[in-house]
Design a protein around this nucleic acid. Structure first.
Length: 454
RNA sequence: GCGCCUCUAGCUCAACUGGUCAGAGCAUCGGACUCUUAAUCCGCAGGUUCUGGGUUCGAGUCCCAGGGGGCGUACCA
């Protein structure tokens, strides 16, 4: 409606009669004339209510901030030129029994913002903007994937065996089957089963659950885009990632150069690619790789305050060193490539170096945005890797994997050369919406239940 | 998990080194007002200063314990 009535002179009466509905957000009563601000999901409009035209004028003036009302009247502008609707008729659609927060300051306590998102969305402009952006991002992502021949699928959330990532799962119980089930920590193994089944390009926008700490970057349930493409290798998905992110930035932010927390970020493709060992060497000031002797790597860890365990091989030590010294400093997007095989139990060995795998992580603003790799397709090697994980698990590492015999059986039927990718949707939204905390991109973040006395 | 910070009226915030310090604005309630837009003006009311202990002549203020929240760290995405 506002778009259809741009640039009217002050004091215009258009003759157009419209009906609108929304929430009364502000009210300015002036004796025999009242003004109000009505808000709905599309924006705000001023109500102009002279006692002469407004039925039940006194009751109109007594409406509470936050009441839902419907209004019918002529579109006009005030003497000051503000586009308004003259209230010729109105109805109370739903009242509010609780006062709305301070009209200027809004809600400052983050806890009540998260708990009472239904109020926050009215009061905090940025919150509404962020969640609309999130919705558009999901929709654009689906279209992007479908345009490239990917099929959207839904795989189980209940897993008899948690797999596809290294993480502690949530456990639950199915009564009729008398079965312990896990909420998925990743959809990966099911999606690869589908590639075995002949769906050569699949993706899922998957809610996953990890029983770990909560922080500004971690919610126990979060959303991941995972996709798999047969006949491709990790280069294919690096290209897909940088194109997707650049596309989303253009559509949602209007440019591939965006601002995050006051610093510019250039998301335009192509992104730099750099081997993990090379980046780490630069930071550490010494040439390191998976072939560096364990003793030397331990020294370097000590020198940089990185804790290590006896059980860590060179690959794990190198990864720890990279994560503690290098990752957080990578601001503009980089694909860190060629990870140690030791820390990547589901990745295919590197074509040029058996100690490495063809794996990449996309790092933006110092944070991991995505993780992908050429998939391990050899059932024998996969069985060995699972067994190595199971051994670690037996030693008390409850994030290590469990042997998934059905997945191995699927591999026995043949998984073609395939590349897979996982993108953290919440973190992508954080990046594009320029927000600091994951709780600002999750509508109802996990919180401790409120004490039962209010 | 651990470390640091924080908690005052429905909301947003004050109260110097412990000494009439329990206050203001908005919202609510009563009154005035026909072009306001955080409307304005006058007035009323509103609090177990998160909880429980302690130190002190005296605690919102200092100490201890507990609870909520935030940030950092760890784990990860």
């Amino acid at each position: 409606m506002a778009a259809g009535h741009q640039g009217l002179e002050p004091g215009t009466e258009t003759g157009n009669v419209v009906s609108v509905a929304g929430r009364l957000m502000l009210r300015r009563v002036q004796g025999k004339l009242a003004f109000g601000t009505l808000a709905d999901s599309t924006g705000r409009i001023q109500l102009f209510a002279p006692s002469a035209s407004t039925p039940d004028f006194e009751r109109f003036c007594e409406l509470s901030l936050g009441d839902w009302i419907g209004v019918t009247g002529e579109v006009m502008t005030t003497r000051r030129g503000e586009l308004s609707i003259r209230v010729d008729d109105w109805t109370l659609l739903a009242g509010t029994r609780r006062p709305f927060p301070d009209k200027w300051h809004g809600i400052s306590d983050p806890d009540t913002r998260y708990r009472q998102r239904y109020v926050d969305l009215w009061v905090t402009e940025e919150a509404r903007h962020t969640f609309v952006l999130r919705s558009h991002l999901l929709s654009l992502t689906r279209r992007f994937m479908e345009d490239r021949g990917y099929l959207e699928v839904e795989t189980p959330v209940f897993h008899p065996i948690p797999g596809g990532a290294l993480a502690r799962p949530f456990v639950t119980q199915h009564h009729a089957l008398d079965l312990e089930l896990y909420l998925r920590i990743a959809p990966e193994l099911y999606l690869k089963r589908l590639v075995v089944g002949g769906f050569e390009r699949v993706f899922e926008i998957a809610r996953v659950f990890r029983n770990e700490g909560i922080s500004t970057r971690h919610n126990p349930e979060f959303t991941m885009l995972e996709c798999y493409e047969a006949y491709g290798d990790y280069h294919v998905h690096m290209e897909l990632t940088e194109q997707l992110v650049a596309h989303l930035a253009t559509e949602l932010c209007g440019s591939t150069t965006i601002s995050y927390q006051g610093r510019p970020v250039d998301l335009s493709a192509p992104w730099r690619r750099a081997p993990l060992a090379e980046l780490t060497s630069e930071q550490v000031g010494d040439d390191v790789s998976v072939r560096t002797p364990v003793a030397r790597l331990r020294e370097l860890c000590d020198a940089h305050g990185v804790p290590w365990k006896e059980s860590h091989g060179p690959g794990k030590l190198l990864l720890e060193l990279y994560e503690k010294t290098t990752e957080h400093g990578l601001w503009d997007p980089v694909f860190v490539i060629d990870y140690p095989a030791e820390v990547s139990p589901l990745s295919r060995p590197h074509r040029d170096d058996p100690l490495l795998v063809e794996r990449f992580e996309g790092i933006v603003v110092g944070r991991e945005l995505c993780n992908g790799f050429s998939e391990l397709t050899d059932p024998d090697v996969q069985r060995e890797r699972f067994e190595a994980q199971a051994a670690q698990r037996a030693e008390g590492d409850d994030e290590a994997m469990v042997v998934d015999h059905d997945y191995l059986r699927a591999l026995d039927y043949g998984l073609p050369p395939t590349v897979g990718l996982g993108i953290g949707i919440d973190r992508l939204v954080m990046l594009l919406a320029d927000v600091h905390s994951i709780r600002d991109v999750v509508l109802f973040p996990t919180l401790r239940p409120e004490p039962q006395d209010g």
